[in-house]
Write a protein that binds this DNA or RNA. Structure first.
Lengths: 155, 155
DNA sequence: CACATTTAGTTGACATGTCAATCTTCTCCC
DNA sequence: GGGAGAAGATTGACATGTCAACTAAATGTG
C-alpha cells in the first residue's frame, strides 16, 4: 500500500487541459453537426461508414468493427436511424443471422449535404491550427498513449 | 457552393486515430474507475473537486464552473450522488438560491480510497508513455487546437 | 416600495451509451 | 441428421447528458 506518485504542477495542468479537451472537442463536433445537419455525431459516423462501403451493403457487425463500437450501441442507433428513415435494414441473403445496412435516399441526401460542412469543421478545428509537422507529431503522441493503454488491457 | 478540401490519406488517418482516441480514452478511464472504485468518472470528478475546495463548502454553480459542465448536468449528478450518500446538499446561508455541497463521510472515504488507483491509471496511460518533452508538446498541441476552436466560437 | 430582470438551481422529456440476458441462426463433430 | 456451442444481432433496464421550461430568490430602478 505505497503512496502513488501524485501529479506535480505541470502534470496537473496537462491533465486538466487534457480532460477538458476530451470533453470539449466531441461536444463542439456534436454541436456543429446538430446545427448544420440536424444529426448527431454518431449518426454521421454511421452514414459515413455505410456510404463508404457502398455500393456493397454493410453488415451490422462489420459496422461495429469499423467504428469500434459495441454491437448493442450500433443496434440501438440503427433502430433510431431506421425510424427516421436514414437507413434500411434487411436480412442478409448469405447469413440468416446478419443484417445488411444500406442508406435510404434520404440518407444519401443527408450525408451528402452534411459532409462539406463537417469536413470544414474538421479542417478548421484540427488541421488548420497545426502545421504539417505538428499534425504528424500529434498522431504519434496519440498512438503512443493508446498503444500503452492497449498493452495493459486498459483500452 | 465550392467543394471543400477533402482529407488526404495522412489526414484521414490522423482523423481516424483521433476519433478513436476521443472515444477510447474516456471509456478506458470509466472502466478503471468503475472496476476499482465502483464510481463513474463524473462522480470522481465531483468528489475530487469538492474535496479540493474543502474545508469550504462548494457552491453548486462554482462546481459547474470549475468542471466546465452545464448546470443541469451537475444538478442531475448531485441528486444521484446525494441519493447514494456520497455528498450532502444544504441551502447556502448567504444566498437563499444557492446550494452548498459537502462530502459525506462516505464520500471522503470513497475519494480517498479511489484516488491512488486513479492517479496510477493517469500516470500509466498518459504520462509514462511520453517523455517530459513529449508531454509538454502534447499540451501545446491540445491548447492550439482548443484555442482555435474557441476563437471561432465552436467550443 | 413595486415590478421587471437577472441569477441559482431543479425538473422533465428525450437521446444516447453500457451491460447482461435473450433469441436465432450457423457450425462442428459425432 | 442432430445436438452443443459459437456467432450475429436485438432487447430491456439503467446511467448519463442535453435542451428547454420552470421555480424561487436577489437585484436594480423608477
Amino acid at each position: 500500500m505505497s503512496e502513488p506518485r501524485w501529479l506535480n504542477e505541470e502534470e496537473a495542468q496537462l491533465w486538466l487541459e487534457f480532460r477538458e479537451f476530451l470533453w470539449g472537442f466531441p461536444r463542439a463536433m456534436d454541436r456543429q453537426l446538430i446545427r448544420d445537419a440536424g444529426m448527431s455525431a454518431g449518426e454521421y459516423a454511421v452514414l459515413a461508414a455505410v456510404s463508404e462501403a457502398a455500393p456493397e451493403a454493410l453488415r451490422s457487425g462489420d459496422l461495429a468493427a469499423t467504428l469500434q463500437w459495441e454491437r448493442s450501441r450500433v443496434s440501438h442507433l440503427l433502430r433510431r436511424m431506421e425510424a427516421k428513415g436514414l437507413i434500411e435494414r434487411c436480412a442478409s441473403s448469405s447469413d440468416g443471422r446478419g443484417q445488411d445496412i444500406k442508406l435510404s435516399d434520404a440518407g444519401w441526401k443527408t450525408i451528402r449535404s452534411a459532409a462539406p460542412d463537417h469536413v470544414s469543421f474538421v479542417r478548421e478545428t484540427l488541421f488548420d491550427p497545426l502545421s504539417a509537422a505538428e499534425q504528424e507529431k500529434f498522431g504519434v503522441l496519440l498512438a503512443k498513449i493508446r498503444s500503452a493503454a492497449v498493452d495493459r488491457n486498459l483500452w
